[in-house]
Design a protein around this nucleic acid. Structure first.
Lengths: 342, 342
DNA sequence: CTGTCATCTCAAAGCGTTTTCAAATCTGCC
DNA sequence: GGCAGATTTGAAAACGCTTTGAGATGACAG
């Protein structure tokens, strides 16, 4: 059933039917009812391709993600973010389009999405320092919102980020207050913007207490379980092992916990651990005291908000870019305690 | 730059240019070269909407997922599956479209995708017993492939599944051979088809050894970390606790491990654990002996294959449905050992 | 030189919408 | 009854592509 057939059944022109369906004011209320009823009865929905061609809008948002997990995209966080964004999309009548591309093809993918007019806008994941995608997208004139930020760019664009610097600074201060002095940092890849911000917060907190950050205590890499495990083992086996770990992801923190276990150390007593917790839906441990002390910020909620920002931006093209900075909350769990006195 | 402008620049008709670009034979080789060069130079790519309207194909595949994680969709597995499917899509020039919908709106979502002609086919996730989506999709005449199977349906459709029954049967036998007699099963929601198949395999192995399955040792629920933790604690605190756990997901297995730790039990010595491992990319622990003994099957690879099956099916509409049954491999890790003699 | 065939090219008709511009119909008022 | 103005409707032109059916052109044989 298409518009032509529907209008034939109604003895109306396609124009009138289209208007009635799209809520234009110049159609008699009775006619509109008749049209709406018929559409319902005959199960009519407008062909999205034709509509898109006519309106110049695709009502779709693109997410370009590199195929490898090198840049931490295809990871547990991604699923939750997508779920949040997807909620907003379906609420607003948008489709979500995901493009999985070779690592070096991301920019080409944006170009292609724009030129083929496949999407009305895109969301940028995992920004790096001076991320080239941002000037590219501005250049392409393709609306976008960044999940995170790219320091080093003097451009005005829309983003939503967690205050990573502040949250890791607070977490570090919390550990310092507990008496810890040798605090290790297991961070994401240094190229990732959030990682460098977290490190800045960590080092700032140490500096404020007159402690010189020890580069030997800072590890950065892809945030897998294995990275947490290996990194922690490595540090624990040194002459002066850290008494606390600040870990950038829950997954890696699980690796750290495994390492502690291997070495017969009790988490929260012998060694303290704070992790960043993205509040992943399948990892929440219910109502009791959480396993890990963590800096907490829902990535699903971030997805919802970022999507909404983008849709708003698409609907009001002349509005200035929006920036949102979320504060992570420090949740005290069972993985932290006073530094052991030795 | 659109086709009209491009053909104007070339002094050719749109017809010829279109044919040249799409590799039709009836255009002179020299002309084709000229067209291809110009397309390259002017950065021309055909408008996807217009192309779709003209050809009746959207070159997009839909994935409908319920908003909640109740049906275990928005979970770590999903990300990896999507990554695999996405690889195939971009290789074959398809877009991946993800629709996040309210739990009870999935069927309406399929209807809408079909009627609006948004996608050329869909992939069905997390089939349940007698899953109503399958007859619906057949009815809608929308090509689809199921990741998993739905027992109870006497329909012929395309699916790809892991041999869940066999893999859990083997895992159970492995535990039995190690001398375990009280083996707990921490399974996914009973409504999920894979969960009932796994249970069947487990009970079959027990029955083959003359052991009556104890319903008290079987727990099913959403496969979160908390579920593993709570379930294990509950079982461990009984009068006759199990000496081994068979767990349906890595995430829940991590919960089980936490419970063992809480009770001062050593995994692999006091209590054995086997889990199903979807070989998630960010969970691989490298080259050494894996932490968990597991039944292993790459969900990413499944994504790749399912996507390919669907695309093949779309391209040859008259071909019969395809079925693929993958065998999971039993990887012996450090979480299993002989049953303690008491 | 003509006719035949193969090769190459094109104008125009779709595909299913929206939207512009014009026309028809109604309303109230003199 | 006629007319201005408001209200409703409709025919047709876009949107950017593919594809049909037919027309040029050139080569070659008779």
């Amino acid at each position: 059933m298409n518009l032509k057939e529907l209008s034939a059944k109604l003895n109306l022109s396609q124009t009138t039917v289209s208007r009635a369906l799209n809520g234009y004011p110049e159609v008699k209320e009775e006619t509109r009812r008749r049209v709406l009823d018929a559409a319902e009865r005959y199960n009519y929905l407008p062909n999205a391709r034709a509509k898109g061609l006519a309106t110049g809008r695709s009502h779709a948002i693109g997410h370009v993600i590199p195929i490898s997990s090198k840049h931490e995209m295809v990871n547990p966080i991604f699923g939750d973010f997508i779920a949040g964004a997807g909620e907003t999309y379906s609420k607003c009548g948008y489709e979500m389009l995901i493009s999985v591309v070779e690592d070096d093809q991301a920019e080409e993918a944006y170009r292609s999405l724009k030129r083929r007019a496949v999407v009305d806008g895109v969301i940028v994941h995992g920004p790096r320092k001076d991320d080239p995608r941002i000037p590219l997208l501005q250049d392409l004139d393709l609306p976008f919102v960044v999940h995170g930020r790219a320091s080093g760019l003097a451009l005005d664009y829309s983003w939503l980020d967690v205050n990573n610097r502040r949250s890791f600074q607070r977490a570090t201060e919390f550990l310092l207050d507990l008496g810890h002095r040798r605090i290790a940092l297991l961070n994401g890849l240094e190229a990732m913007d959030f990682a460098s911000r977290r490190r800045a917060g960590y080092e700032r907190a140490l500096a404020d207490r007159g402690i010189n950050p020890d580069p030997g205590l800072e590890i950065s890499g892809e945030m897998t379980e294995a990275m947490g495990y290996r990194g922690a083992l490595d540090l624990l086996d040194r002459a002066m092992p850290p008494t606390a770990f600040l870990v950038s992801s829950m997954i890696s923190a699980l690796g750290v916990r495994r390492a502690l276990e291997d070495r017969g150390l009790r988490m929260g007593a012998d060694v303290s651990v704070i992790t960043h917790d993205d509040a992943l839906s399948y990892f929440t441990t219910g109502a009791d005291v959480p396993l890990f002390t963590s800096t907490r910020s829902s990535v699903r909620d971030a997805g919802r908000q970022v999507a909404q920002m983008l849709i708003d931006g698409i609907n009001t093209p002349d509005a200035p870019p929006q920036q949102v900075l979320l504060e992570a909350e420090l949740m005290v769990g069972r993985s932290t305690g006073p530094a052991p006195t030795d």
